[in-house]
Design a protein around this nucleic acid. Structure first.
Length: 616
DNA sequence: GTTTAGGCTTTG
């Protein structure tokens, strides 16, 4: 007896006869992924169609899940051996018989023809390959394979869809329902419900579940799906068929959320399929999941890097064209207040050290103060480091906290609170963070990498700002201060209202406002001594940014801007020149009265004047 | 040896 492979004969679906056992090919038009039947076996119902355009629905049973056809989507192609044909309700029906075996192929034209099977031995040769390829081409124009697939990012409040995803957690809920926690790397655009379960009932990597909590959705599966769901392995890739999204709201919620249900029963192919890692959709999903930017870990990483570093190394143009020039003598002889246009020379100015011209101004109480020394900030930070971060204030609805202890001898406790938007952490360049226990150097570095940094300390029930001699906010190179007189610091949680905005811009003025801080403005204050043929006049420059085209807030931390300002002054008032050789300036001044107890004095201020770009 | 389901319109 020779061991030649038997020659199989395949019956077209329009030639099936009651009571026969046949071999056949078909394209999957509909299927129910294997589920636990009410009997002793798994069951899978598969409807096939072939170029004869006859449909055949098969009920396939097996005690062994693996020996049922591995169908993943409509359009897959199957080859059944030894399937029994019976007539039922006037139609042919296929049913497993002894020795049933199946091969399944991806139905995509051009995809490799690789059979999915549990049989160790099967015949598959050139002729079979040709049959599969022909069926693929036929199916391509005769079967609609556009299933109701969706990504979590594409779900709507009321739909049924198939989800390809990874299982990251599961939990018992009650006898008739079971919870699956899954993700596909995209974010559901609606708030999603969280099914309350006992911590001890939740299976899955806790750290991962926490990390992914904004991307994971809870799917509640019912009745006949429960037993299969229980048997699923964490980490496995699933396709869950015909998930129902439902909009609902709980009593304690202001906004409605989306619920994901896999209802009981199997109509519409409702069920759960486990996909192997070799599945092309799984390969694609895996690659995507690996690329998902977990901003949280990114933020954390940047902080770690920064902290490790610090541990281990230790002619003047004008508006107002209607005004004509006025001689200085006329101005000094006239009562205030008035506005003038003048043509004069800048004989001298104060302060000579330009950085000394920068002050902080409160527009509410009109006070001026020196910019605090950086050492003051260091002292304040040092003093507040005595207050340990309060763990009860960590991880609230609007920020995410990380803490650690520095590795140096000081063993400082550091807590960083990243403000979230819409439950999600943002990219570092958009993130506002609050820090406890940092040094000036560390805070400075953080301010360069993150949108804003606010140094805080813990109290019993909230985070609070430090002493207002310290900057209450750092953004890039700029330190923002509040007026001690006019500020009434409010709880840090007021920031959450900004965090809830569509796209928080984190403007210092807005932050200051919600925190009850009267923001101090950086200004240049200078005294210009102006002369013309008729006399001399001292005029003050009070300028935020217009005169030099340099923001006063940035000059202290920029050598480049300091040089630019020095060059401007050297052009307006070249050192070592005789008066006659100085350039003429045109600018606007206004006179005003300053009264004190003794006398009334008239002062002059430069206004609405900008040094032209071509002057420098 | 038998039963399971028999897709057909889902919803807790």
């Amino acid at each position: 007896c020779s061991s030649v492979a038997p020659k199989y004969v395949y019956t077209p679906l329009n030639h099936l006869k009651d009571g026969t056992i046949v071999n056949l090919y078909g394209v999957v038009k509909f299927f129910k992924p294997p589920y636990i039947s009410k009997g002793t076996d798994y069951c899978s119902v598969v409807t096939l169609v072939d170029p004869s355009n006859v449909k055949l629905t098969c009920s396939l049973f097996s005690g062994n899940l693996d020996s049922l056809p591995k169908i993943y989507k409509v359009g897959d192609i199957v080859r059944f051996h030894r399937i029994k044909i019976r007539e039922y309700n006037g139609q042919m029906q296929g049913i497993t018989s002894g020795g049933f075996a199946s091969l399944t192929f991806d139905g995509t034209v051009g995809a490799p023809v690789v059979p999915r099977t549990s049989s160790r031995v099967y015949t598959f040769m050139e002729e079979e390959q040709k049959t599969v390829e022909e069926l693929r081409i036929w199916a391509a124009s005769n079967i609609s394979i556009s299933g109701p697939a969706a990504k979590l990012s594409g779900v709507q409040p009321m739909m049924f869809f198939d989800l390809t995803c990874q299982l990251v957690g599961k939990a018992k809920v009650d006898g008739s329902s079971f919870l699956l926690k899954v993700w596909d790397g995209t974010k559901c655009p609606y708030p999603t419900w969280k099914v309350p379960v006992e911590a001890k009932d939740l299976e899955g990597e806790k750290v991962l579940l926490h990390q992914l909590r904004n991307l994971v959705v809870d799917i509640l599966v019912y009745d006949n799906h429960v037993r299969l769901a229980e048997s699923l392995k964490i980490g496995s890739f699933l396709r869950i068929y015909s998930i129902h999204t439902k909009q609902a709201s709980a009593d304690n919620e202001d906004v409605s959320h989306i619920e994901f249900h896999l209802h009981g029963g199997t109509c519409y192919g409702r069920g759960i399929g486990v996909l192997p890692e070799s599945n092309p959709d799984v390969k694609e999903l895996k690659a995507f999941l690996e690329s998902v930017d977990l901003t949280e870990s990114q933020n954390m990483e940047i902080c770690m890097v920064l902290f490790h570093l610090s541990v281990y190394c230790f002619a003047v143009l004008t508006d107002h064209q209607d005004l004509s020039n006025t001689e200085l003598k006329t101005i000094t002889n006239s009562p205030a207040p008035q506005q003038y246009r003048i043509r004069a020379k800048l004989r001298s100015y104060k302060p000579q050290k330009l950085h000394q011209s920068v002050k902080l101004h409160c527009s509410k109480c009109n006070s001026l103060q020196e910019v605090p020394d950086i050492d003051d900030f260091d002292i304040i930070l040092h003093n507040s480091a005595g207050t340990a971060p309060n763990p009860e204030l960590h991880n609230t609805s609007w920020y995410e906290s990380v803490t650690w202890t520095t590795q140096d001898q000081k063993k400082r406790e550091i807590a960083i609170h990243f403000v979230k938007r819409d439950e999600m952490l943002q990219h570092p360049e958009d993130t506002l963070l609050m820090i406890e226990g940092g040094t000036v150097k560390e805070i400075w570095k953080l301010a360069k990498r993150f949108k804003c940094v606010i140094p805080v300390r813990s109290t019993k029930d909230d985070l609070e700002l430090l002493d207002l001699s310290a900057p209450f906010l750092l953004q890039g190179n700029v330190k923002y201060y509040g007026c001690k007189q006019c500020s009434t610091p409010k709880p840090m949680k007021n920031l959450s209202s900004i965090a809830a905005e569509q796209q928080p811009s984190w403007e210092p003025t807005e932050i200051a406002q919600v925190l009850g801080i009267e923001l101090l403005q950086y200004v240049f204050i200078m005294k210009f001594t102006l002369v013309d043929e008729t006399g001399t006049l001292n005029a003050y420059l009070f300028d935020y940014e217009k005169f030099f085209q340099i923001p006063a807030s940035e000059i202290l931390t920029s050598n480049f801007l300091q040089q630019k300002m020095q060059m401007t002054m050297n052009t307006l008032c070249p050192p070592g020149r005789k008066l006659g050789d100085l350039p003429w300036l045109e600018c606007f001044i206004r006179s005003y009265n300053v009264r004190d107890a003794m006398k009334n004095q008239v002062c002059y201020q430069i206004f609405d004047t900008t040094v032209a770009d071509d002057v420098v």
